[in-house]
Write a protein that binds this DNA or RNA. Sequence first.
DNA 1: CCCGGGCCTTGATCTGCGTCAAAATGCGAC
DNA 2: GTCGCATTTTGACGCAGATCAAGGCCCGGG
Lengths: 256, 256
Amino acid sequence: MSNVVAKQLVQPLQRGVVAENNPCAACQVRDLSICGAIEPEHLGKLDAIVVHKKLVPGEILFFEGDRSDSLYIITEGCVRLSKMLADGRRQITGFLFPSDFLGLALRERYAYSAEAVDPVLLCRYPKNRLEALLDQFPAMERRLLAVASNELAAAQDQMLLLGRKTALERVASFLMILMRRMQLKGRQDTVSLPMTRTDIGDYLGLTIETVSRSLSKLKRDRIVRFLTAQDMQIVDPKRLAQLAGADDEWKPTTTL
Amino acid sequence: MSNVVAKQLVQPLQRGVVAENNPCAACQVRDLSICGAIEPEHLGKLDAIVVHKKLVPGEILFFEGDRSDSLYIITEGCVRLSKMLADGRRQITGFLFPSDFLGLALRERYAYSAEAVDPVLLCRYPKNRLEALLDQFPAMERRLLAVASNELAAAQDQMLLLGRKTALERVASFLMILMRRMQLKGRQDTVSLPMTRTDIGDYLGLTIETVSRSLSKLKRDRIVRFLTAQDMQIVDPKRLAQLAGADDEWKPTTTL
DNA sequence: CCCGGGCCTTGATCTGCGTCAAAATGCGAC
DNA sequence: GTCGCATTTTGACGCAGATCAAGGCCCGGG
């Protein structure tokens, strides 16, 4: 298991050219991630322990049950986290995007598998060396706790979705989640779905057919419009939010 | 909303008699909870900020959306956490038992409601004062991170359950969860269900009828036996584990 | 002891989504 | 461009679990 990871192409460009120049300082997503908790003058300590890594679509970062010796931060692309039952039924527990944190766990083993959805770039930190840094920078640890707390809230939203929402509500909720993520970096009403329908189904606890039918209904009702099968435009965000069960008035939009 | 909490009966006995005597030191669940991270000689600092609280069955501790100004630790009884949709559909995201932590969130507002299932005793800590303690005791903060990380793993298990398991598998998984909790404090093959069938259904994403039918099937198949409607005996833990989809070989049993 | 009102269980029927099947669409290779 | 495969969409049908509807049981109060 899990040696697909072996061929970890260390990015020659970033490492060679930029690394001596303090790449963390130039990082686009730093402020959004836990690295933002470290003062610029100390970023060198992060650089010292980071290894950059590249994944091709479908490549596996680690398997559920592998020993967890590393933490990661996504800098580009989309990663899916999943758990499986013995007979192959799969549940995707989350999709990760740039600035997202992966491997949070002072636990012995990963509780889920992580695979690249599309081409992914990420920063890898050895667990023990990062923990040493946490001792030096309490602000970083506090930030980690905040991240965990946000993920927990997201997980609870997902439980509500999986336990009690209809197929159409689930798909609408999914689009809302993606939309909100995209808003964080500019794009407004347009959403791209780098993952397959199978992935979406496994995330929402539905089959691909039901996902497809729900998307078709949203299309028929002029709530969304498809440019390609992976790129869509949210035509009527209000109605989409209603369908999603927008109980979100007082919910802060991710207070990192 | 949320003023049911007003009648917070401060426990006269524990406060008056034991408090001057350092009740935290005598606490039965301390080692299991985050308080265990504080050295005995510093427990006084915890005692200084704690308020003991008692809830009657059904009493609401706080509502989803309330400002979160407190953290709690359960010392006795069972608490349910839930989220609701506008039309009343409810999802219970977890049941808490003695030593469990509640209100983890450096977030502004609670993401869920918390209600007593049966008579509950808990310790309440003002958020800002506990945060001050965290600064003094990094071990406590680390412990908090570990708790969060465990809860996250549990949440992901629950997503797998809600998204991909059948009714029978869900009920079996639920009993396994309870059984494991009970084992932590002695009781072996006997499990009590302080919550109603409605609660169980809302936890498992099922209706009460389906929960009842599934339990009846487990009973018919001699996997469990009922003493009363709330007290059962696990006759065949192996088969129960199989039904639950026991992919748990390498899963640690809650590494606090 | 009996009564009343929650719960819980069981049965009959319905339905949203899964399953099976096939057609349409997109897209990279040549 | 067009061929071929993978993915998505659409349609027909079936089933697990929801809904509707009776009872049965337990327990507390009079």
